[in-house]
Amino acid sequence: MSADQQVSRRVAVVTGASAGIGAATARRLAAEGFHVVLGARRVDRCRRVAEEIGGTALPLDVAEPASVRAFCERVPEVHVLVNNAGGALGLEPVAEADEENWRRMWESNVMGTLRMTKALLDRLVASGDGHVVTVTSIAALEVYDGGAGYTAAKHAQSALHRTLRGELLGRPVRFTEICPGMVETEFSLVRFGGDEDRASAVYQGLTPLTAEDVADTIAWAVTRPSHVNIDQIVLKPRDQHSVTRAHRS
């Protein structure tokens, strides 16, 4: 089935769907009966997931306006948009900030969410029961040493999402922000430039959330009755209290 064709099922678009939370969300929404359009730079990985769930995989780089336009032109109908693409780079203090990393984080987390939501908002409203889910982080609620670039981007992404909730009040579209704590995906591996030892140390001594935990939460939010808006969900491992405090055995 192509995203260019009319489909009888509700359509969900998931960004950053090549792995981790995005791929798990695509699988979970397909299980709920959605036709899922998966977008990511690593479109080969998206295709493997799409083949598994009967979805559609399209190339997408949310940091590139032309890529967003080309992707959205292939999606004539949409009911749910999951803004999941993003991520962190580096862990330097502000005095040593890498400005290029800051730009890349801002482009993927903030501008990517803006571009995708702008491009699909009219179609979400026209569906009569649209839903925008934005995956931010507990870093959208707290700050920590060395994390200013990522927390600044996530705070901004959260502000963008929460502003839309007010601007679209009275229209047939809902807005849900998902704020996960520690989730063991490729997140830390990307953040630390492929350093597997440093990435795995983040989760040592505790049981982190899985991508499937977050996907289940997203699926629950988007399958509530249409008059119910789940504004924000914060989910963490049992052993995590805050962005800086966790119990490790």
Rank of each mutant, 00 (worst) to 15 (best):
S249P: 14
S200A: 15
Y203S: 13
G16M: 10
G112E: 05
S137E: 07
S249E: 11
D216G: 04
R171S: 11
E52D: 15
I218Y: 05
A40T: 07
E92C: 08
L169C: 03
V75W: 03
T244V: 13
E73N: 13
A3F: 13
L81H: 05
V125A: 07
A66R: 12
A126V: 02
T117V: 05
G87S: 06
T185R: 08
E196F: 09
A26G: 11
I178F: 06
L29D: 02
G147D: 10
S108V: 11
L58R: 05
A85L: 09
Y203D: 11
A88D: 12
G149D: 10
V173S: 08
R191H: 08
G128I: 14
P208T: 11
R165W: 11
S188C: 13
E77M: 14
V7H: 14
N84F: 11
F71Y: 03
A24W: 12
S137L: 06
I21N: 10
A152Y: 05
T217R: 12
A50L: 09
R41N: 06
K236Y: 01
V243N: 11
V110G: 08
A95H: 08
A40P: 04
A19K: 13
A66G: 09
V75T: 05
T244H: 01
E107T: 01
E92D: 15
H241K: 12
E142P: 02
S67H: 01
L121A: 07
T207K: 14
T163P: 05
V173Y: 10
D61G: 00
S158T: 02
L160Y: 12
V243Y: 11
V143H: 01
A24P: 07
C179G: 00
I218Q: 01
A50K: 04
I178A: 00
V82G: 02
N101Y: 12
A24T: 13
A221L: 04
G87P: 04
Q232F: 01
A139F: 09
A201L: 10
V11A: 03
T185L: 08
F192I: 09
L120P: 05
Q204E: 15
R47M: 03
G149L: 15
D44C: 09
E184K: 15
R41K: 04
V78N: 07
N84Q: 09
V11E: 07
H227Y: 13
A199M: 14
E196M: 07
T113E: 07
A19R: 14
